[in-house]
Structures are given as C-alpha cells and as structure tokens.
Amino acid sequence: MALNRDAILGAVDVQTEKVDVPEWGGDVIVRGLTGDELDAFQGSIRQFRPTFDGKGMEAVLIQEGMRAKLLTKCLIDEAGERLFTDQDASALGAKNGSVIDRLYDVAARLSGLSEEEKEALEGNSETATEGAASTSSSPETSAAPSPNS
C-alpha cells in the first residue's frame, strides 16, 4: 500500500537511543537528526575556498569540534528537548574524548550518516581530502638524511 502525504508527514521517524555513560554516572538519550538538521550540520563543517591555483573552489572539512557539534544537536532530555545549545560545543568537546567519540558514533548512525560519509567527516578516507589542501597544523615529516649529507 502506497503512503500518502499525510501518512508520510505524520510518521514519527526520528530515532532515539539511551546510552549508558558510566564515566558520567548515568545514561544519556541520543536523538538522530532530521533531514534539515543533518543538512545544516554537514554545511556547518564544510568551508569552500579557492583552489591553490586560484582557478576553482574546493570543499574543506572543518574537523575541529565536529563530534561535539553534532552531539549538542543530538543529546536530549526525557521530554525530547536538547540538553545543549550550539554554543555549548566547545565545553562539551572538553569532556572525555572516548565518551564523545562513542556518543558521536551513535548520533551519526541514528542521523543516517553512512559509513563513507562518517569516514569522510572524520578524515579517514581519500574522499575527505581528495583535491583539498591539508587542514593539519602539524608539520610534514622530512625524509631521512642521505648517507652523503
């Protein structure tokens, strides 16, 4: 049976999951993002800038605070209200990295981020940096000196 407009718009389809966080002394509720929220999140961590040769534009992922930024949108209370505002991302990001990463994985899954998108956002694939300049602030390693130097 094909769904009609009202059935689709009336469906409660945003998932939630309770996650035990022993490091914090209890459970948190993680909610997946809506389509609009997911688009806004993905847009907020991408920056477009001119290519090195100045002939085009490239998308660069801004990974700093990315996990906490997603979690501020996805951690909710029993009534379904957000626990954090977008401005709380930095404070939340200062919490245990292992916990933040674990909760990020749940939020990403509930929000429909595919493994490929998740890897690209985390910078673990060629897609994330293909054609983009590095955003790392660490210097590149140099080759070992030759025996003749």
Rank of each mutant, 00 (worst) to 15 (best):
103 L>M: 09
136 S>M: 09
73 K>A: 13
56 G>T: 10
46 R>G: 02
127 T>Q: 15
68 A>D: 14
64 E>D: 15
61 L>D: 05
23 E>G: 01
54 G>P: 08
128 A>M: 11
5 R>M: 03
70 L>Y: 13
5 R>E: 04
93 G>V: 04
8 I>T: 07
142 S>V: 13
87 Q>Y: 07
27 D>W: 00
134 S>L: 00
84 F>S: 10
141 T>Q: 14
41 F>G: 08
95 K>T: 04
128 A>W: 08
81 E>H: 12
29 I>V: 04
123 G>P: 00
4 N>G: 07
47 Q>F: 15
46 R>V: 14
8 I>G: 02
5 R>A: 01
50 P>K: 13
125 S>I: 07
82 R>Q: 11
78 E>N: 14
56 G>Y: 13
113 L>C: 02
50 P>D: 13
136 S>H: 09
27 D>I: 01
94 A>G: 11
144 A>I: 06
141 T>G: 13
86 D>E: 15
46 R>D: 06
42 Q>C: 09
104 Y>E: 01
56 G>H: 09
101 D>M: 04
42 Q>S: 00
117 E>K: 08
107 A>E: 01
52 F>E: 06
38 L>Y: 12
77 D>E: 08
6 D>Y: 12
5 R>S: 02
35 G>P: 09
35 G>H: 14
144 A>Y: 11
47 Q>K: 15
7 A>L: 07
58 E>T: 10
121 L>C: 03
12 V>E: 12
111 S>N: 09
119 E>H: 10
109 R>N: 03
88 D>H: 13
110 L>C: 05
66 M>R: 14
52 F>I: 05
123 G>H: 00
4 N>Y: 09
70 L>R: 14
57 M>S: 15
56 G>M: 07
60 V>D: 04
136 S>F: 09
140 E>C: 02
53 D>H: 03
143 A>Y: 14
143 A>E: 14
24 W>I: 10
132 A>N: 10
12 V>L: 11
129 T>Q: 06
142 S>I: 11
97 G>M: 02
126 E>L: 10
39 D>E: 12
14 V>A: 07
66 M>P: 01
145 P>E: 11
31 R>L: 00
28 V>K: 03
103 L>P: 08
73 K>P: 03
98 S>N: 07
30 V>Q: 04
74 C>V: 09
55 K>G: 05
130 E>T: 06
6 D>P: 03
116 E>I: 11
105 D>R: 11
6 D>W: 13
31 R>C: 01
54 G>R: 09
48 F>A: 10
12 V>A: 13
67 R>E: 08
148 N>P: 07
61 L>A: 05
43 G>S: 08
91 A>E: 12
51 T>W: 00
95 K>L: 01
134 S>I: 00
91 A>P: 02
131 G>Y: 14
63 Q>G: 15
147 P>K: 02
56 G>Q: 07
54 G>N: 08
99 V>Y: 11
26 G>Y: 03
72 T>G: 09
140 E>K: 11
31 R>S: 03
9 L>D: 05
135 T>M: 04
137 S>H: 03
106 V>F: 06
52 F>W: 03
71 L>Q: 15
50 P>M: 12
147 P>H: 00
78 E>L: 07
147 P>D: 06
41 F>Y: 15
51 T>Q: 00
50 P>A: 12
25 G>Q: 01
76 I>D: 02
129 T>I: 13
112 G>V: 03
139 P>G: 04
102 R>T: 15
59 A>V: 12
